[in-house]
Simulated scan of single mutants.
Amino acid sequence: MAPTIRVALIGLGHVGRGFLTLLLDKKEILAARYGLHIKLTAAADSSGAVLDAHGIDPALLLQHKVTHGGIGAFPYGGKPGLAAPDMVKRAKADVLLEASPVNLQSGQPALHCLRLALSQGWHAVLANKAPLVLAYQELSAAAAAQGKRLAFSATVCGALPVVNIGQRDHTAVRYTKIEGVFNSTSNFILTAMEAGKTYAEALHEAQVEGVAETDPSLDVDGWDTANKLTIIANSVLEFPCALRDVEVRGIRGIGLDDLRRARAQGEVIKLLAVALPLGDGYRLSVHPARLPLTHPLAGVNGWEMGVVWHTDIMGVQFAKVDERGPIPTAAAMLRDVINIHRGRR
């Protein structure tokens, strides 16, 4: 019989539901290819929680969430009003999956839940960027002290393994520069504007497509990109920093004339994240940048995201992803759980 990893999931939004969908769709592959069974033993959203050490049926939970809403009213053990931290205290699990909404002011309740889970000897897998942006060094140290994994490949460009490649594959590398287009919403808007739409029209189209939130400020003002650059700096560059250390300027000031002028000169404008060596650390910035059409990131359009690593011994490497919807991000969380399983074996 395949070994079992017990997981507790916080957040049943698009990504959380996507993860449950993958548990159902990939059950046979997980067993056949990795010798793994993933058992959901607890889940929580803003309405409450459900706990069952014997396992919760993902199909039933998904059906309830889609048709009835909050899982506090789940007919098979739902506990209305039970907060996520209390669920973590009571759950029987090996891994905490954190996919709750981003709260960059305090990181809560995700940060409290992660502290509890790590103190209880669980691994942690995150799609939520806020705890890492606010407390990466603390959480990393707490996981190391317990001999557990803090995995978060889903937080930077979803399924594109930006963090994994940097941490695992770029061994003995010194970076001369890292550049990235890390936000699909702003990239979609700039691409639509290049096709002749105004900023307002492009933003509306992005909202209709489901790429942009009703309040798109986190994306278009550059802060989502800055969050991801902060995570890369701490985890890949091993440069302890906070969001305040990133110079940030978004795309609101970019107009049709700017894009047309750049194109006429053989360039394109992208919202660019850049890490450049500076003294013993790095200069981190997010800003609209004019890139020559020959630049790898110049061809990252629409929903796509991409990264270019400039290294001293492994050349210049480029990777991009075209991902739409929440499944690729959920798949990155699944990837982290599988890698935790591999490490245990």
Rank of each mutant, 00 (worst) to 15 (best):
K92H: 12
G325R: 00
V88F: 00
W122V: 01
K228A: 13
L237S: 00
P161H: 03
L40W: 02
T214E: 12
A110W: 00
L114E: 11
L111F: 06
V316R: 14
R342T: 08
V88L: 11
V211M: 04
G18W: 01
K270I: 07
I56N: 02
T191R: 07
W309F: 15
P109N: 06
Y175G: 03
G299C: 08
A154L: 04
R261Y: 12
G78H: 01
A2G: 04
N128E: 04
T294S: 15
G253Q: 10
K177E: 13
H68Q: 12
G196K: 14
A130V: 09
G55N: 02
G81F: 02
M1V: 11
P288A: 02
P101D: 08
N339R: 15
I165K: 09
K39N: 09
D258T: 11
G147F: 10
L61E: 02
Q108F: 05
N234I: 02
R324H: 12
I189N: 00
T185K: 01
W309M: 08
R90L: 13
K39E: 14
R345W: 12
A275G: 05
L243P: 00
R115S: 07
S153R: 00
P85W: 01
Y282S: 09
E209R: 14
D45L: 00
V307M: 08
V102K: 05
A145L: 14
H68E: 12
R6V: 07
K27G: 04
L278G: 09
N227G: 09
A159S: 09
V133A: 03
A145M: 15
R252H: 12
V50L: 04
G77Q: 09
E201V: 08
G55M: 07
H170C: 13
A319N: 05
P240C: 13
I38E: 02
K39V: 11
L22C: 06
I10E: 05
E98I: 11
E28M: 14
L12S: 02
R90W: 06
D257P: 06
R335Q: 13
A143D: 00
R261L: 14
A212T: 00
K92G: 07
G81E: 05
R283P: 01
A332P: 00
A93N: 02
M314D: 10
V268H: 11
V7G: 00
F182E: 07
L284C: 05
V211T: 08
S153E: 12
D258K: 11
L276K: 12
A142L: 15
I10F: 10
R344A: 11
F239K: 03
M1P: 08
G196S: 13
A195L: 13
A330C: 12
R290Q: 11
A49T: 01
I231V: 10
K177N: 07
S186Y: 06
V268K: 15
A226W: 01
H341A: 09
